[in-house]
Design a protein around this nucleic acid. Structure first.
Lengths: 148, 148
DNA sequence: TCCATTTCTATTGATATCAATGTATTTAGT
DNA sequence: ACTAAATACATTGATATCAATAGAAATGGA
């Protein structure tokens, strides 16, 4: 009975070629692998690099805004912090002004790891930047931001 | 001692604002949530939709090319197939021409689920398409493809 | 044919991701 | 001050992701 419901192959090709979600997921996986490989000598993944970089602030931020900045679920952030805490790179402390909340900060070791990773990021980013046409990077960022 | 290695806050802001990897990961998470929410009534996630759509072909493909198409690790594909097999939507069979390989195909139930999900995809995709400027979608796809 | 190499996939272990849910704390309304 | 609602995180369970590794089968060269 289910046999009567068939999507034409041409429709499949159209969806594959046009689906923005698929295109973004694909690029996300490819870029993640690229940066993970490059950052491996520094002991960081691309996500850990982005997270730790976002914690490099004058004042330790609470979790909510950090999760929003990274556009990730709050529970994902909780999980992502675990290995970084174990390695002693990130400190999670209770917020004295609001005991429900936590304040996130880099330890000196964490800052050292981040400093070691920064030139790797610069090099890798310059490389992929070169793969885009003139002004493509800025344009791409705008388009992606419109989808977040 | 590690205290001497400090990345300036201005550098952090620069990395946050320019990092293409971060921008893509962020958009990927946001879009994944959007499509997951929309497709939930059909019982599919965005990744399962893309995977099953890519299996809607005249001839059942082996795993390698499918993983390459989705730009995912082959081990990720093996894992992603498991829940779809359990639900009886995807059939994995040994390739008689090469007994190392597997051939992937949709079951009639799988085709029915995919057919139910298609109009949801169309609607959701039209919505996010509208968030981009004129011709932005095609441009964005090109830029993303350059990074894969 | 035989063997080394290559190819195709599975397994394991670690992290990433989110929905659903629960807990503690703060805030607001009375 | 008291209580209801809202807020900020944590936990659990399921899937997603990849590196490292291993197994089985095909391929190519001698």
């Amino acid at each position: 009975m289910s046999n009567s419901i068939e999507i034409p192959f041409s429709t499949t090709l159209m969806v594959r070629d046009t689906c923005l979600c698929l295109h973004v997921q694909r690029a996300a996986r490819a870029l993640a692998r690229l940066f993970d490989d490059a950052l491996r000598p520094a002991g960081l993944t691309n996500g850990q690099f982005s997270l730790m970089m976002s914690l490099n602030r004058p004042e330790p931020p609470p979790m909510g805004p950090v999760a929003a900045l990274l556009a990730m679920d709050q529970t994902t952030l909780t999980a992502a912090l675990k290995p970084l805490q174990r390695k002693g790179w990130v400190k999670v402390m209770e917020n004295p002004r609001d005991r429900r909340g936590r304040l996130l900060s880099l330890t000196p070791d964490g800052k050292a790891v981040l400093a070691k990773a920064l030139p790797i990021w610069e090099c890798t980013h310059a490389m992929i930047d070169g793969k885009l046409p003139e002004g493509g990077a800025a344009r791409l960022r705008e388009d992606l931001q419109a989808l977040s």
